[in-house]
């Protein structure tokens, strides 16, 4: 790998200033993704600014919920009793990802900023607009089993790999960012973006922006939430599709409020707003869930390799609702 400078940041502001001043600098968190990229030559930064030791590793109970430091390890976040009770989808999503060793190392902020596992992005000898803008997209017309079915563009057809990001979007979480221009707060569902004609950028963050924390607002929705991940093997695999559902149900079975977010289908966690709209204010039934998913999937445009994701995400959505509402009437299919 290319030789590089290593800077151990003294505090978040200094870390941000150091990276912001140097186009070749990158933050280093848990390193579970970036270090692979250094070895593979996917990225060749001149300077790594290590933020993994900064005291951004706490849980803070607030009036609205819980604030998670960006350096909280995935394993600690998943195991936290408050998270498991108040935001079960977050814990389940984390435990559905990676392996025990990786979860011990990976951070909350880093999880959200991991890059795609598209095989062409991972291979510097093949064209990839995300790795090398303008070089072309090899995944379109190539190995497409993991490709997006929603929101793709000719520039990029890949999906975002984070399970956590899908869960956070379902509980109205927010990401706190410290950047060269100061602090700001970004709804988790708006952190990631669709590729359009710019495949290079996964998120709305700019160079030098540092995620410092994630806010989890407490809600009835978040308390009744779950995560279903469909994958090729029983553990340690990225999602073929995944579904995060958060549900607030009136006593009569009417949907008071709902979030449906899909992973493995788009360049970002896909908030299925059309599906949510179809469900909100109506009695919750299996048929209603399936119809809602179909409404969202009307705009799906899968390649032949990824066509299976359409029925799979529909079924997984129904499964997620059944897990939340065991009494949900099941209809013949």
């Amino acid at each position: 790998m290319k030789e590089l400078a290593y800077v151990r940041a003294s505090d978040p502001a200094q870390a941000v200033a150091t990276v912001a001043d140097d186009p070749d600098a990158r933050f280093l968190g848990g390193g579970t993704n970036l270090v692979d990229h250094l070895k593979l030559g996917i990225t060749t930064p001149g300077t790594l600014v290590d933020i993994s030791h900064l005291p951004l590793d706490g849980f803070e109970e607030t009036a609205d919920g819980l604030t998670i430091g960006a350096n909280v390890r995935n394993s600690d976040l998943a195991a936290d009793r408050r998270v498991r009770a108040g935001w079960p989808v977050v814990s389940r999503a984390l435990l559905a990802g990676a392996s025990g060793q990786i979860r011990n190392q990976a951070t909350t902020g880093g999880n959200l900023l991991q890059r795609t596992r598209c095989v062409y992005f991972q291979d510097p000898t093949t064209p990839c607009n995300k790795r090398e803008p303008g070089s072309g997209c090899s995944a379109a017309g190539g190995y497409g089993r993991y490709n997006a079915i929603l929101g793709a563009s000719p520039a990029c057809v890949t999906v975002h790999p984070s399970d956590l990001a899908v869960a956070l979007a379902a509980v109205d979480a927010a990401v706190l960012v410290l950047g060269p221009g100061g602090r700001r707060r970004i709804p988790a569902a708006e952190l990631h973006r669709l590729p359009g004609d710019d495949a290079e950028h996964d998120t709305v963050l700019g160079h030098g922006d540092l995620i410092t924390a994630v806010e989890l607002p407490a809600s009835a929705l978040a308390r009744r939430s779950t995560y279903v991940k469909v994958r090729d093997r029983a553990s340690f695999a990225f999602a073929l599709v995944s579904v995060a559902v958060a549900l607030d149900l009136a006593e009569d079975g009417t949907v008071t409020d709902v979030r449906v977010v899909w992973g493995g289908v788009a360049h970002k966690p896909w908030r299925a707003e059309r599906a949510e709209d179809a469900l909100r204010g109506r009695p919750l039934t299996e048929a209603a869930v399936r119809a809602a998913a179909d409404a969202e999937l009307a705009s799906a445009a899968p390649s032949s390799d990824a066509g299976y994701k359409v029925p799979m995400v529909r079924n997984a959505t129904a499964l997620a609702f059944r897990r939340l509402v065991p009494a949900l009437a099941e209809e013949d299919r």
Partner: peptide
């Protein structure tokens, strides 16, 4: 699980690591 996907446009196996060439994990 196991499948080495060769991309005929390039000629090489594109599932060239253990994250994309799946072998049985303990849980399986």
């Amino acid at each position: 699980f196991e499948e080495s996907v060769r991309d005929p446009r390039f000629g090489h196996v594109v599932t060239q690591d253990l994250a994309t060439y799946h072998i049985a994990a303990h849980a399986d």
